[in-house]
């Protein structure tokens, strides 16, 4: 095994994980905001959410990334590559996530909402205590898939000069050649990060389903 290649790659992998989790947090907030926004009773909110979602789902992530990287400085917004990457990734993944949120909220039994209305619960409280916890159980499996998609997508940020795993790999190739070894190792490291993410999400799914007391489908 080419162990001498590992230290720089592991350093890159740490940045990849930081990028993944920071973007995941922001994307979750955006997904909840846009997903609930599309179900809002106000037309303006629905429109804004729909435009955001369709623009970011409809065009390519790499184009969005380059757009932020090249066009933001032109309007005087200078961000370091890490922040640019987080911005593009979370806006893109958040748009996909919002569709999951929307579908999950709509899948909650209408009787639950009606019961909340019958009990004279304010809308916000009903959303927080009744609708979202049940919807969240339905959101978790697709969120798990999206998290792996996000992890893979962070590799694109290497193209705007951030030294994460893919960039570290490219640097090693430039310094030492050894193309097949380096890229195989990079691929393996991504696999090693994706696997625990998938497993971890399964655990969270089961834990949430138990806590809320509903099966993932019901």
């Amino acid at each position: 095994m080419p162990f001498d290649l590992l230290p720089p790659l592991l350093g890159g992998a740490v940045v990849t994980l930081a990028l993944t989790f920071t973007s995941a947090g922001l994307a979750l907030i955006l997904a909840l905001g846009a997903g609930l926004g599309r179900l809002s009773r106000w037309r303006a909110v629905r429109t804004v959410a729909a435009v955001y979602v369709e623009v970011f789902r409809g065009s390519s992530l790499l184009v969005q990334l380059f757009y932020f990287f090249f066009v933001l400085p032109l309007i005087g917004v200078r961000l370091p590559p890490f922040a640019t990457g987080v911005l593009a990734l979370s806006l893109n993944i958040g748009a996909y996530g919002s569709e999951i949120v929307r579908a999950a909220v709509q899948s909650v039994d209408p009787g639950q909402r009606e019961a909340a209305i019958a009990l004279n619960m304010p809308t916000g409280l009903a959303l927080r205590r009744i609708i979202l916890p049940q919807a969240f159980v339905a959101m978790l499996p697709p969120f798990g898939n999206l998290l792996v998609e996000l992890l893979k997508s962070t590799s694109l940020v290497s193209l705007i000069t951030l030294t994460e795993l893919s960039f570290a790999g490219r640097q090693l190739v430039q310094q030492q050649g050894r193309v097949s070894e380096v890229y195989l190792l990079v691929l393996l490291l991504y696999l090693l990060m994706a696997y625990p993410l998938t497993r971890g999400m399964r655990l969270v799914e089961r834990w949430m389903a138990r806590r809320v007391g509903v099966g993932a489908g019901s």
Binding site: K152, S153, Y183, Y190
Partner: peptide
């Protein structure tokens, strides 16, 4: 499925 398309692309292109 678990590894990025970008790296697969580089792998094929250079290897």
């Amino acid at each position: 499925r678990s590894t990025p398309l970008l790296i697969q692309l580089f792998f094929l292109f250079y290897v």
